[in-house]
Design a protein around this nucleic acid. Structure first.
Length: 259
DNA sequence: ATGACTGGTGTGACCAGA
């Protein structure tokens, strides 16, 4: 059995005590992190190794940044940066093979305000991801696209959907882009495990959103068929969102059977 | 419709997040 988690930490250095506490409790085998907000040289490698994890990361100053951590199995990096635009300097994509699973850790652009150049960038990034995903669908090995997609796929995934229809995370163009990706043959692990439940992975810092459970489901695991037939369990470590100095996202995890 | 929080950066009447 292998436990794979995703966690948008919203600053890996500021979040280090929370991250380490959660790693100790949850003991995931593989962790995909987003929003490091750290240049490569300031990634807290020593603390992560002390916690028992090897890591690869793709950071930048101030914003974005993604990493893959592994406890038991070696990480073979495959690439960093999403192909398709040599002008794109934002660190939002890193891929690696861990124990035979091809893992893409991604942080899709937020896209607000919409419409506007940031929303255009989001949709362009989505197109490039979809092109990359199409190539990955040709592989026979298990493949996982995981991370912060900044998309609520359906109305079930957002508190008061009527308030979000013009938001970059929920606009028709964004949801259509997500559906186009899914239709290549990807399975949304958490929604497959819990078809009808309200599940959130993010709660705003504002207005006591966590206390009111006014959340969003925007962190996703998309599996190809070779991986989805091994899916066992999954969930959100919701209590982490209630800790002191916590991220606005909670960690999300799945377990998959050994081959 | 607005603003409320937070991290990073660097003391900004800051930016960006979702």
């Amino acid at each position: 059995m292998m436990k794979i988690a995703t966690y948008n930490v919203n600053g890996v250095n500021g979040r280090l005590p929370v991250l380490l506490k959660w790693l100790k409790i949850a003991k995931p085998d593989v962790v995909c992190l987003q929003e490091l907000k750290s240049p490569d040289e300031k990634f807290p490698m020593a603390a992560v190794e002390e916690a028992g994890y090897k890591a690869i990361w793709h950071g930048q100053k101030s914003w974005n940044g993604v990493a893959i951590l592994s406890r038991k199995h070696p990480i073979r990096e495959i690439g960093r940066g999403l192909p398709g635009d040599p002008e794109d300097m934002q660190s939002r994509f890193i891929e690696a093979e861990v124990k035979g699973i091809h893992i893409c850790c991604l942080y899709l652009p937020n896209g607000n305000p919409a419409p506007g150049p940031k929303f255009d960038y989001k949709l362009e990034w989505f197109k490039r991801l979809t092109a990359k995903a199409k190539q990955l669908q040709k592989l026979t090995e298990p493949v996982l696209l995981v991370g912060d997609f900044n998309v609520m796929p359906t109305e079930l995934d957002v508190y008061k959907p009527e308030r979000w229809v013009d938001d970059a995370l929920f606009r028709p163009e964004t949801r259509a882009a997500f559906q186009k990706l899914i239709k290549q043959g990807w399975t949304d692990a958490i929604r497959t495990l819990y078809p009808d439940e309200v599940i959130y992975t993010f709660w705003d810092y504002f207005r006591n959103a966590y206390g009111r459970n006014a959340g969003l489901r925007i962190d996703h695991f998309l599996m190809n068929d070779a991986l989805s037939k091994r899916l066992q369990n999954g969930g959100v470590d919701k209590e982490v969102r209630g800790w002191e100095k916590t991220s606005d996202h909670a960690p999300v995890w799945i377990t998959v059977k050994d081959k």
